[in-house]
C-alpha cells in the first residue's frame, strides 16, 4: 500500500499516516528522529509544564511542609556528612583533634547532590512509561516527553542543594565560586541531556522487562561508589595505580561530577600531603557532553523504535 503522503484536503490541519510496514523501525533507522526532539519539546512545553506541576504537587500534596522538604533534605544531609565523615572518620585532616575541614564535607556533599539528582531522575524516568500506563493506553500524546518532567524535578532538587552548598561553602570560606559559576546552566543542560538519554533507554527497557528498575537500583549504587563521590582519586591510586585512570576515563559520571564541583567553586586543596585537583572545566564539559549525546542518540533510538509496542504492554 502506498505510504506516500497525499496532498491534504483544504479542511485538514494535519494528516496522520501510519503504515505498519514502513514504521517497522530498526535501531539504526531510529537514530535520526532524535533531531526532532527539541522541536517536540518546545511545541509541547505546556504539557511538560503540566506534568512537572502534577509530579511536584503529587509528591508533596498533603504534607505539612510541602516543598520545603526539598530544602530540608540537603541541609540534613550536609550536617550528617559533616559530623560523621568529618568528626567520626576524621576525613581530610592530619590531626584528628582539629575541627573538621568544611572543604571535605562540601566535597562529599556536592558529590552526593549531583549523583542523587542523576540516579533519582533516572530511577523515576525508568518507570515513567509504565507508571503512566493509563495515559499511554488511552490518550494519544508524545510519550517520549514523559521522562522530561521527572528529570527536571530531580534537577530542581539539585539546584536547591547547590544553593545550600554555595551558601555554606562561601560562609565557611571553603568554596570560592568565580566566573565558572556562570557555566552552571550549561552544566545543568548537559546533565539534562545525559539523564534524558539514559532515561529513555531505561524507560523502554522497563516496558519489556519489569526487573529493569530493580537492577537499575543496584547498578546506581555500584556506580556511585565507582565514582569519586565519597573518596579522593588519590586514595585509590595507591591500590589501583594506572587502573584508576581507566576507571575514571570510562566513567560517564566522572566528568559531569567534576564539572559540577568546579562550577560550584571548589578549588584545589591538600589533604595531608596529597593534592586534590579538579582538572579543567572545559575538558570535563566536553567529555560529559560527548557522553550525553551518545546516550541521547542511543536511548531515543531505542525508545522510538519500540514505542509502537508500549500501549499493548503497559
Amino acid at each position: 500500500m502506498s505510504s506516500v503522503p497525499q496532498p491534504a484536503p483544504p479542511h485538514a490541519t494535519s494528516v496522520r499516516t501510519y503504515s505498519a510496514e514502513t514504521a517497522r523501525h530498526t535501531l539504526v533507522r531510529g537514530l535520526l528522529p532524535v533531531l526532532h526532539y527539541p522541536q517536540l519539546l518546545w511545541e509541547h512545553r505546556y504539557l511538560v509544564q503540566n506534568f512537572f506541576r502534577r509530579d511536584l504537587l503529587g509528591r508533596f500534596r498533603g504534607s505539612a511542609l510541602g516543598i520545603v522538604w526539598v530544602l530540608i533534605h540537603p541541609i540534613f544531609l550536609f550536617t550528617i556528612y559533616y559530623l560523621v565523615f568529618g568528626y567520626l572518620f576524621g576525613g581530610g585532616r592530619a590531626d584528628p583533634k582539629q575541627p573538621p575541614d568544611p572543604r571535605f564535607a562540601l566535597y562529599l556533599f556536592s558529590g552526593v547532590i549531583v549523583f542523587t539528582s542523576l540516579t533519582e531522575g533516572l530511577g523515576r524516568a525508568c518507570t515513567c512509561v509504565v507508571d503512566n500506563g493509563n495515559l499511554v493506553k488511552k490518550v494519544a500524546f508524545p510519550s517520549e516527553l514523559l521522562p522530561v518532567p521527572v528529570i527536571l524535578i530531580a534537577q530542581m532538587v539539585y539546584l536547591v542543594g547547590a544553593a545550600v552548598c554555595l551558601v555554606v561553602g562561601i560562609s565557611a570560606g571553603a568554596l570560592q565560586p568565580g566566573w565558572a559559576l556562570l557555566a552552571l546552566p550549561l552544566v545543568v543542560v548537559v546533565q539534562f541531556v545525559f539523564t534524558l538519554g539514559l532515561g529513555l533507554l531505561l524507560a523502554s527497557l522497563q516496558v519489556f522487562a519489569r526487573d529493569t528498575s530493580q537492577l537499575w537500583g543496584i547498578f546506581a549504587t555500584a556506580w556511585m561508589f565507582l565514582t569519586p563521590v565519597f573518596w579522593f582519586p588519590f586514595q585509590l591510586e595507591q591500590t589501583l595505580g594506572s587502573g584508576l585512570g581507566t576507571l575514571l576515563a570510562w566513567n560517564p559520571a566522572y566528568p559531569l561530577l567534576q564539572a559540577h564541583r568546579i562550577v560550584l567553586g571548589a578549588t584545589d586543596f591538600t589533604v595531608g600531603d596529597r593534592h586534590v585537583g579538579f582538572g579543567a572545566l572545559g575538558e570535563h564539559l566536553l567529555h560529559a557532553a560527548g557522553w550525553a549525546l551518545f546516550f541521547l542518540f542511543l536511548g531515543h533510538a531505542l525508545f522510538h523504535s519500540r514505542r509502537h509496542k508500549f500501549a499493548d504492554l503497559v
Binding site: 502506498s2 494528516v15 499493548d312
Partner: peptide, 19 residues
C-alpha cells in the same frame, strides 16, 4: 486515535483528532 498501532496495513486520518 493513535494510542496503539496496527501490526500490518496502513491508515490515514486527516484533520485534528479528539477521542
Amino acid at each position: 486515535t493513535g494510542t496503539t498501532f496496527p501490526s500490518s496495513g496502513t491508515y490515514t486520518v486527516r484533520g485534528r483528532v479528539a477521542s
